[in-house]
Each structure stands twice: as structure tokens, then as C-alpha cells.
Amino acid sequence: MEVRTIKVFTTVDNINLHTQVVDMSMTYGQQFGPTYLDGADVTKIKPHNSHEGKTFYVLPNDDTLRVEAFEYYHTTDPSFLGRYMSALNHTKKWKYPQVNGLTSIKWADNNCYLATALLTLQQIELKFNPPALQDAYYRARAGEAANFCALILAYCNKTVGELGDVRETMSYLFQHANLDSCKRVLNVVCKTCGQQQTTLKGVEAVMYMGTLSYEQFKKGVQIPCTCGKQATKYLVQQESPFVMMSAPPAQYELKHGTFTCASEYTGNYQCGHYKHITSKETLYCIDGALLTKSSEYKGPITDVFYKENSYTTTIK
């Protein structure tokens, strides 16, 4: 009895394709271990004539594949690729409408935090270190965002349907971005203890939790000093293409032309909904596939993004 075979390709990165001759009487799992086709788990399936010449994702289970996976995804987590594939199996079914010149995501599976993050990423200057993220990001900007969303979920250790947080998501993504040249110098002034300067680099240099107003941050924000008295913390120097200011959701007025974009969060910790506000020729609110415009805006804002380049204080 002759062994019926077909020729397929296996890959971990969709760049390096490895030619395989597979036995049609055995499952993919018996031949390769966990195997995925377009995100779908085909591990328990036997090869079919229609699979001839198709590319299958496999887990990096030998040295060659491990090197290829690390170079593309910059992670050695053995569960990463499987999590990416199972997320992709959902995100490829989502709709990605162009809204006001940006790629958004039609609401499904509690994905409003991903839509808000995706919209924000198209408006701030950011370059990702893992080629996987950078490639998928370019495709997302062009309207094909399924891979990018699935990668975000995998890097953030999230599953489809789980509630997510924009600030946490951005923080994970910033860790995989090139923020080497970003720098922030802060000064804390206390009447009792004097003053202390701190220099922050990388992710810490672009994120701040405690106030939404970048102007206020430049002037000074009140913080408790270690001595128990009130101290003032203010920005001395900022070198970065953008800054992200966050605070627990509270009524906040966004003035046209003073910011790049913002995240609105309605609801409580267990259950809520994100919308995205962007400042173009007027203010726009993007909620999944829905767009509304207004000249002014007041609502429960939790993150505001500002364009920056270089700032030095005039406070002496």
C-alpha cells in the first residue's frame, strides 16, 4: 500500500517557510505537534488534498525554529505562539472599519479597549522592536488589523473576551517599542525636605499616572512627601515624541487643539466601556464603527496623549 502524501510549508514567522512532505494517514499533531492554519487549530486533523502548498504555523520545537521565533517575536515564552494563534482565530472574524481616516474595530468580545489602543497607536510616533509587531502594525494602518490585535493580546497575556485596560495595554506595548531616546527629568520640591531631581528613561519617561493635564504637570502637581507634608512635583525636561497622561476616570474637559487623542471610560472596574476622542479640525468621538463630532467635550476621561518633541522648564 502506497503512502499518500502532500507537500506543505511549516513556519513560526510566515517569513521562513520549511518544506514538509506530510503523510495523509496521520494527523498534523502526530507529525508536527500543535499546528495552526489561519489561526485555526488543526492539530487533530489529517492532511487533505486542499492543504497542498498551504502554510501551517507550528510551535518552535527545534533550534532553527526557536531562533526564527525569537528573532521575529522577541520572546522565548513557549506558550506565546499558541496564544497568538488562538487569538487570531477570533480577531480574523472582527470587522476593521476605516473611521475618520483611522483603522478602528467594530465592537465584539469586549474589544473596546483594543480599538482605543489601536486608534491611539496610529496617532503617536512609535516604532516597535519585534519585527512581528512592526509588520502587523503597518498592515493594521492599511486596514488589516487582525494579526496586530492578536499579537497585542498575546504580548499582554490576554484572551479574547476578557476586559482590558488601555493604560495597561499601552504599557505592555511600550515595553516592546523603541523608547531608548526618551528621557524625563522631574523635580520634587518640599518646604521641609528641599528639592530632589529624578531622571527617568524609556517607558517611565512617557507615562504618568495622577493627572490628565500635561500643562498642569509642567506647572506642578501636589504629591505627598515622605515627611508627610505636601510637596510639588513638576516637569523639568521632556525628550520624547509623545507623552501619555493618565488618571482614574473623572469628568474632564478636553479643549480642541490642546491634545492629540484621549480615552474615555464609562462604567466601573468590573464592567465598563471605552471610547476614543481625537482632536482634528474639530473633536471626534470614535466608538467602534461609530463616529460623532463636537466642538467641545466633557466626560469621564482616563488617558490623554500629547505630541511632544523637546521641553525644558522655565521655572527657576
Rank of each mutant, 00 (worst) to 15 (best):
I223F: 14
G210V: 00
Q222G: 08
S104F: 05
D287T: 06
V99M: 15
Y214P: 04
G288P: 02
C227G: 00
P131H: 03
L212S: 03
S25L: 12
T278A: 10
C190T: 00
G202M: 02
K280L: 14
L133Y: 01
E52S: 13
P97W: 08
P300E: 11
A231C: 08
I152W: 03
G143Y: 02
E144I: 06
H51R: 04
V166I: 06
Y84E: 01
P224A: 13
L118G: 02
H176E: 06
A136Q: 10
F32C: 12
N268W: 08
G228N: 03
K229Q: 13
Q30F: 07
M85R: 06
L88N: 05
K280F: 11
R141I: 10
N61A: 12
F259S: 01
T211Q: 07
F56G: 05
L235N: 01
L212G: 02
A132W: 05
Q251F: 14
W107I: 02
K183C: 08
M24Q: 13
V12D: 07
L186A: 07
G272D: 00
T302E: 00
K293Q: 15
Y269L: 15
D13V: 06
C190D: 00
T10N: 09
I124D: 04
G288A: 04
V166S: 06
I315K: 15
L37D: 14
K127V: 11
Y96D: 03
K298P: 04
E68K: 08
L126N: 05
K183T: 14
L290Y: 15
M170A: 01
F32Q: 09
I6A: 09
Y172D: 08
V8H: 05
W107G: 04
V22N: 05
A108I: 07
G288E: 00
T43P: 05
A177F: 01
I286K: 00
T169P: 03
G267Y: 09
A247N: 06
N89P: 07
T211W: 01
T159L: 09
E168M: 11
N49H: 15
Y113W: 08
P78D: 14
P34C: 11
K46P: 12
G202A: 03
M244W: 04
Q30D: 12
N111Y: 03
L118E: 04
Y57S: 07
T278S: 12
L200R: 07
C112Q: 06
Q31W: 13
L118Q: 05
M207F: 07
N157D: 11
Q134I: 09
N14D: 10
K316D: 15
